[in-house]
Design a protein around this nucleic acid. Sequence first.
DNA 1: ACCTCGTTTTAAGATAAAGG
DNA 2: CCTTTATCTTAAAACGAGGT
Length: 491
Amino acid sequence: MYYKILSKIPSAVLIDSKQIEDKIDPNYNNALYIEYLDNQYDVINYSVSKNGDIIEELTDYTANGSFAWLKDNVSYSDNTGIPFVKIKNITDNGFDFNDLVYVDIDTYTKLKKSQLNGGELLFSKTGSVGLTLVVPKDCDKMSLADNIFKVIYKSDIDVHYVDAFYKSKYGKMWVKRLLQGGVQPTIIKESFRQIKIPIPSKEIQKYIGDKVRKAEELREEAKRLKKEAEEILNNELNKNKADRFNIKNEYIFINDKPNILYVSEELIDNTRIEAVFYKKEDLEIDSKLVEYKHGYKLLKDICVKITDGTHKTPTYIENGVTFISSKNILEDEIDFENVKYISKEEHKEISKRCNVEHGDLLFTKIGRIGYAKVVPDKLDTFSIFVSVALLKLKKKVIDEYFLQVFLNSEYGKKQSKRLSKGSNQPDFHLEDIGQLKIPILPIEIQKEIGNKMRKVEELKYDVRVLIHEAKQDVEDLIEGNFDMSKIKKIN
DNA sequence: ACCTCGTTTTAAGATAAAGG
DNA sequence: CCTTTATCTTAAAACGAGGT
């Protein structure tokens, strides 16, 4: 094999013409890939297999039949039946079933190539290519949608180890190397089979695979705790109703879709006369809070300060102080990976009006609305964009983690959606944010809920560490830095 | 009739930023 | 303060062609 790297960035490589068989692909022969995926691989101490050689079965949705056949035989159903797993349901944090489509049982049976029974590796192949997830062993029946590979590995391969490989920088690099497609990236089966995976001993595979399995367990536990926290909140609000005392909230419900109801004149807020402001589900939540035994307070009254991030687009720089926007505030988590950076001076300027401190609450207000997250301890200072609000709380009245749970719950989310404005891009104005109704639960119950969320945060941290370690282990294997004594310690 | 492998088109969603 | 526009990303649908 002859090649000569003329330049790394931009990549310019001389290649032997024999290496270019049927397609001329400068991407495949990028200097970076030659360096890391060819040269680096040559010195790996473990055996290396082609993905295609360790796969028992590689299939997908379209393998079930022709398009005409699929059209005739696939029927979706609203919210019952068998979950139909699409790419958006696959995340780095396991399945996300918030937005789920179902197929009926008959369809599930007919789509036999894409049935899921646990233990399969899923691999997204279009769009955001290379998201992976191992289907948990004891899962319910599910059916796999298009644009995702269903991969069953041979029995002597630890599938969770392979998952860690795909999550590592080498797995990601292989995918990038083999991608194709003009409008949007895609990887075809033939290319997928070409990925080279180092296959170490069973013990090492298990050692790394166990970390991924452990992470999966902890994730489940975190989910369970979050659910418990929400249940406590639910119970509390449902159980402790005061007598109905606020006539202003009266309405007569007529029909759901379309939304028809009569509301009392007093109920109509003179700034909001649009019909969607008076939906039954929203009014129900409102009255639940109004009638809550221990009462509610407006958010503005339990905050020392409500403000938002800078309104001016800052000058981004390569390295500096972290700068985040609403897209970084995830469900009970802050994404510090896809961030921008600003200069210290600019950060200082922004902080004059909006200084983010531990224990404050970040709250998304443009685009994705209503996601709340406490700023955890042990975190470097950072600045926020206009799309994120900053709530500084009266700590004696409200537990910050309880408030996070409440705002992210159905009660919070629905209120946020209702109170925000803007047709295309929803915008939650600061003064409207202040109007959110927060039930003031007895402080012990607030703490109970808040502490569960604190535990969730710890678990999520542990999950991140485990996945990071698993990825690092794979990278160490490839780079020849894997410390074998780690394995011996366990045995 | 069924199966496999693949490409192309459509459209939704997120965000930045300008406009009124 | 609110709406409109632009741009980018990418999920998902739609589809073609050939083989057994």
